[in-house]
Simulated assay, not measured.
Amino acid sequence: MKKLLVAALAAGTTLTLMAPASAQAATTTFGPYGYGKVKLGMSLKQAKATKRIVLKMKGEGGGCSGWDLKAHPTGKDSVGLYISRNVGVAGIFAWKGVKTPEGIGLGSTKAQLKKAYPKLKTAASGFPMVSVPGNPKAYYLFLLNSKGKVREMGLALDTQDCFN
């Protein structure tokens, strides 16, 4: 690397050094409007144009289609995001290592959730949820394990029509 750098500088070439993809991903937060170039409310066409998603499940009968972020594939029976024909990108689900701007991620405790989101409430379905700070059109939802730690986390439009 040193020889390449010296040779490039001697030739008057400017080098742009980039952090590895994993380091770049670590600096991108989950919310308040989406993740990276994939934003809540984008149409299917717009989301596909980002070249960051891959189809996992077709939306049958007018339902939502299931997708994965290419950089963060999910397991066989799950998806990383849903795209609705009505509202576009309706919800995105978190993966290990990603955090909200408030520092919440998989493994965070219920106490950390309450501290980060003082207006945290329990949905009718029993899971904790909160309006996304900085995005009045979206909410975070959390599923906790038996030890009270976040095991699943999502970012969704208030108007999403893909899941309960």
Score class of each variant (00 low, 15 high):
Ala90Asp: 13
Thr109Phe: 04
Arg52Phe: 14
Thr159Pro: 05
Leu81Tyr: 02
Phe127Thr: 09
Pro101Trp: 01
Gln24Ala: 08
Pro118Met: 10
Gly12Ile: 07
Met18Trp: 14
Thr27Val: 11
Lys56Val: 07
Thr50Ile: 10
Tyr33Asn: 15
Leu69Pro: 06
Ala23Gln: 09
Thr122Pro: 03
Ala21Gln: 11
Pro136Asn: 14
Lys115Asp: 01
Trp67Pro: 00
Leu17Asn: 00
Asn164Gln: 12
Gly36Lys: 02
Lys58Leu: 10
Lys110Thr: 11
Ala124Lys: 09
Gly36Ser: 07
Leu155Gly: 03
Val98Ser: 00
Gly62Pro: 06
Gly34Asn: 07
Leu143Pro: 00
Ala26Leu: 03
Leu5Asp: 15
Ala156Tyr: 12
Thr27Met: 08
Ser131Lys: 15
Val89Pro: 05
Lys149Phe: 01
Ile53Tyr: 03
Pro73Arg: 02
Met153Gly: 01
Arg85Thr: 15
Asn135Val: 12
Arg85Ile: 14
Leu81Met: 14
Phe93Trp: 11
Lys76Ile: 12
Pro20Arg: 09
Thr159His: 07
Trp95Asp: 10
Thr14Val: 14
Leu4Arg: 11
Ser43Asp: 11
Thr14Arg: 07
Val98Ile: 09
Thr100Lys: 02
Gly148Thr: 05
Asn145Trp: 09
Leu55Thr: 02
Leu143Asn: 13
Ala25Glu: 15
Leu9Phe: 05
Thr13Leu: 12
Ser108Leu: 07
Ala90Gln: 05
Gln160Trp: 12
Asn164Ala: 09
Ile53Thr: 05
Lys48Arg: 08
Ala138Pro: 08
Trp95Thr: 14
Asn135Arg: 12
Pro20Glu: 09
Pro32Val: 10
Val132Cys: 02
Phe93His: 01
Leu141Phe: 13
Leu81Asn: 01
Thr159Met: 06
Lys99Arg: 04
Ala21Pro: 15
Gly36Cys: 11
Tyr139Leu: 12
Gly148Trp: 11
Lys76Gln: 10
Met129Ala: 00
Gly34Tyr: 08
Ser43Met: 08
